[in-house]
Nucleic acid binder design. Sequence first.
RNA 1: GCGAGUGUAGCUCAAUUGGAUAGAGCACCGGUCUACGAAACCGGCGGUUGAAGGUUCGAGUCCUUCCACUCGCGCCA
Length: 617
Amino acid sequence: MNAVQDPVARVEAAAVAAVEAVGGDAATGVDAALKPSAKPEFGDFQLNAAMALAKKLGRKPREVAVDLAAALMSPALGLKGVIAEPEIAGPGFLNLRLEPDALAIALAGMDDDRLGIEPEMKPHGVTIDVCGVNVAKQMHVGHLRSTVIGDTVARLFERIGRTVHRQNHLGDWGLPIAMTLHSLLSRKVDFATLDLDTLNVAYRDAQLEARGDGRGLAAAIANHCGPHRIAELETQEESAGAAQTAAREALVRLQSGDANMVTAWKRLIEVTMKEVYRACDLLGTKIAPESERGESSFRDELAEVVDTFVRSELAVEDDGALVVRFDDRDRPMLIRKRDGGFLYATTDLAALRYRVQELDSDEVIYVVDARQRDHFRDVFDACRKIGWSTLPDGVESKLVHLGFGTVLGADKKPLKTRSGANFKLMDLLQAAVDRGTEAVTIRAAEPHAPTHGLPPSELAAIGRAVGIAAIKYADLSGDSARDYVFDLDRMIAFEGDTGPYLQYAHARLCSLLEKAGDEADTDASFRIEAPEERRLALLLLRYPATMQAAAHSLEASRLCRFLYGVATEFSSFYSACPVLKTEDSGIRNARIRLVRLTRNVLRDGLGTLGIGAPTRM
RNA sequence: GCGAGUGUAGCUCAAUUGGAUAGAGCACCGGUCUACGAAACCGGCGGUUGAAGGUUCGAGUCCUUCCACUCGCGCCA
């Protein structure tokens, strides 16, 4: 978009100039930005600077507003013909309205391949931690969030021209994995026919076996339980100890490269990831084997990481363990256990250094459960203290934990794998696809439906897109930080503020354009006359700014809200303004052009969210 | 105990980061198709923004004190 020609940019620049002219020195720090009007009757944009300026100048807000309006329309700024005479309202709001021609020019300005979004030229990339799966564990609904939100944030950055590295930090190392391996090997399970469900059971059993319930024992004694109960708990403690010893031995064999162990371990990863990629493919996320960089890939760096902290005197011994302390809080971060073993935080430090330095990122984003807030705060602060967050050219990498809320059960308690009532991610996706296919098939049976007569395979593909759209949009459209109660019916609803609603608007747009065919004049000028056209047009103009804001704030929900608005305004336009049935060919062609731009924005926006946009449904 | 997060319509969420009469969807009640696609549109019902103070032209948003719920807090990942 050319800043000289673009009418909105000209008004924005003029607003800044006018505020300076009226305020002089007092203008510094006063927000001269144009805001979209709260209501259509207030105009297109509002300038709220008069109130803030009046306070600093010690004048009446309405008087300042009058001066501001005069300054804005002074011949030097050349806004005559771009906006109508400003109206002053309330305490001193300046309501601005674009002239129809200016609006048409602004629309034409964004009607290009990039839809007005200029690529950001930055020398470094962005790394996004996504997915968060653990080897030998089934993906459950909690993984939906990290996978879908992470992938969409990645798409947002890609859309504004950034290089993005998706990183899947698999939990593929450590005691739990060794325990599972030991459990499988000792039961002589056939690794060739292994599936994830069997693996998951083995993982859970190994965990249960090894969990010593010391607290249970203490409580039993404190509560004067009978000797039988205490003996039972003591036995449990002992066998848990035995299981842990066995697991430790298994881990040692794995670490030392024991061929059988390594083969079995690789098979474990293979079986797990096959399922993970099935889910990722169905979800349409760009998460592939090249994103895989599990905890195990950093295992040889851990000793050196700890060493570096010790040498820099950032890590000190405490009760046998090595800890990093922070000035502003009591809680230290453990990076090495008393027995010499490393911890979660140690691996994360190694991974973070890799992501900033090797992947060359000026921003590293962790899309991980919000409950790990404190952990990431520690890791990030430690990373900054030791200087790993600074790039060779001196740029400080931004480290962000995009913590998403917990998925709760009907009892408002977090869904736990062990609760049994937990929903496997694949079951959820399948339910959505089934419902989508059912809805599409029913509609296709009606003779008038554009999908009537399509082969079942095509209807199934559309149904899949609809069902997945519902799931993804439901997860993306809210504030990601908030917990939500899992509700299958709500997640796969197709009406109202949902993914399929957006798809439906898109399909109607496509249908109009297909029917318009060759008769449409692609170079027709925009003509914005009806109120419905005006509302749609003004909203479309905000697409580039919305995209930038969504990417920079890591809020996919902003893009969702915007696209929902576009779909809604289009639907109103569609029922109020005939397009193909309009006699006047000038108006018809202008409307077709508006339809095309709307279709392009919706298609591009849905693509950025990672939601499919079928041309018929 | 310490730290963090969240409280908005019956339910699920907004509110352009301090702006105009707090808006949408679902649900409920009405009205629109022999069709530029009714997965839609138009209208109605629904609010002491957890509570009380404070800051100012102006507060859901900022400050203080409470209340409720959730999460985290040294050798798991």
